[in-house]
Write a protein that binds this DNA or RNA. Structure first.
Lengths: 194, 194
DNA sequence: TTTGCTTTTGAACGCTTGTTCATTAAATTG
DNA sequence: CAATTTAATGAACAAGCGTTCAAAAGCAAA
């Protein structure tokens, strides 16, 4: 038998990506088989190839979509003060990442499973994102609002600190996301001012 | 043929662990085959089983040894001020991790490839390490040296920030390790004081 | 109802996986 | 030199891998 019921092309495609996302985040790209993804969708392995040319593209597309969304939604209001821009960035980063734990996990853990060309694309997007933050820091140093010795280091330190939230934050836990944002903003603000 | 030359038991064992460490860090546990490890050592796959009962133990032993070393070497001098203890911790963490990039990478990336029981052991060691830092922070809050709202959050934020150094620091790069330590200590100090 | 298109099946492909084990050779001991 | 122990080989195992494809089945249009 084939085609168990109805026409499913526009439904199965998103389901394949959703299943891959879930399973990659849970078990890791290399440990998840195409058959496992197919089973999660409720389909045979061969059917996946109507929606992706291969397993590698499945991973790459998920990561690229995530990074593109991240960059598209990053706030940047040049009218606001550098301190306000930094606060916007901190709040945005924490909230955006808290909303997408699986995407974030994959984007950080599966870089080494990308082919060389695919890695270069994702790495470029990652650097673009870092540059957004460093631009704010540099402007703040120029205006005298911030006191940091090396903007590159502080950029990486802040991003690492903020992304770390995803390793422990769970909705409905001890702290609300508002409280988390407030606490991290407090640390960041103190760290970059004199 | 067998045993190509010489008696190798006490040499091959460490070489197996070293090869596994290198390859796991490079390609990920799931993507590295026992045959690949054997090839790195210069031996056939079957010979590995003279030194490990299975692949999982190879991973677990590497992670457990790393975490045990980390805890054993963590400084804790109760005679020093809380600010000094925190500074010691920051410097120690950065230097210890910079010395062991492969071990650190594995310890953070391969947790999900541990069996349930093995994971519980490693997770416990990780929490023990976090407790060392939180103990310092709590004492500093009690003495009035530190001003932090939630010691647990600050503990995790500091560790995430410090561990992030490993994603970009390379010996012989733009900054010396001394400079890196100084910069991160500056940020941490400002973040935890009023 | 027939035709044509889309989607899925299920088998098959060649290859790799972790692990076991009888066999063999080197090293050590007596 | 002979006997024993240690350590490695290399073939074999069953299972699983990503991917391909002819055949079958569901759906839409004529």
């Amino acid at each position: 038998m084939a085609r168990t019921t109805g026409s499913h092309s526009d439904i199965t495609g998103p389901r394949v990506r959703a299943a891959a996302l879930r399973l990659f985040a849970r078990g890791g790209y290399a440990a998840v088989s195409m058959r496992a993804i197919a089973a999660e969708v409720g389909v045979q392995a061969g059917a996946l190839y109507n929606y992706t040319p291969d397993k590698q593209s499945l991973l790459f597309d998920l990561m690229q979509a995530h990074m593109t969304d991240l960059l598209a939604e990053t706030p940047s209001d040049a009218d606001r003060s550098e301190l306000q821009q930094l606060q916007d960035f901190v709040a945005f980063h924490i909230r955006f990442h808290a909303d997408r734990p699986d995407e974030v996990f994959i984007a950080y853990m599966e870089l080494r499973n990308l082919t060389e060309e695919n890695f270069a694309v994702i790495e470029r997007l990652r650097r673009d994102y870092e540059d957004r933050l460093e631009t704010i820091l540099r402007a703040g140093v120029a205006s005298g609002d911030f006191s940091v010795a090396d903007t590159k280091i502080v950029t990486l330190a802040i991003i690492a600190m903020l992304t770390g939230v995803n390793t422990w934050y769970r909705a409905g836990g001890r702290l609300s996301l508002d409280e988390v944002v407030a606490q991290y903003w407090d640390m960041v603000r103190k760290a970059v001012t004199a």
